[in-house]
Amino acid sequence: MEEDMEAGVVKKFMYVNRKQPYGTVYALEVLEMVLISAAFDQDVHLVFTDDGVLQLKKGMDTAAIGMKNFSKTYRALEGYDIEKLYVDQESLDERGLSEDDLLVDVQVVSRAEMAKLMDDMDVILTA
């Protein structure tokens, strides 16, 4: 079965994260979908834009809101061979954040560069 998948077509997948981590369940659901889909050996790109950049903020402490802090899980992505992470500078700027505020290594690009990257994808899922 693994051979079948390896022989299959590798598509360019992009998951676009546009929401904050805890106000809705979207961020966690996308993360779980990405981890599961890692088994299919596709060319995965993860984008964090708009409020999605806040998913990668360092120093989260969720004890007082009674939810699980899943931000550490983004650091596991490397082990799942998902290493193409993109953040746009404009979204960081709007929120008063910089690359140093993020807990994983990402490629910081301009919105124009991100737009080009998006045009190049086979499958795009946004939440």
């Binding site: 981590p21 360092k58 505020d101």
Partner: peptide, 9 residues
């Protein structure tokens, strides 16, 4: 405050 802390703000 708890919502700031949760978001690392």
């Amino acid at each position: 405050g708890p919502d700031l802390a949760a978001r690392g703000l």
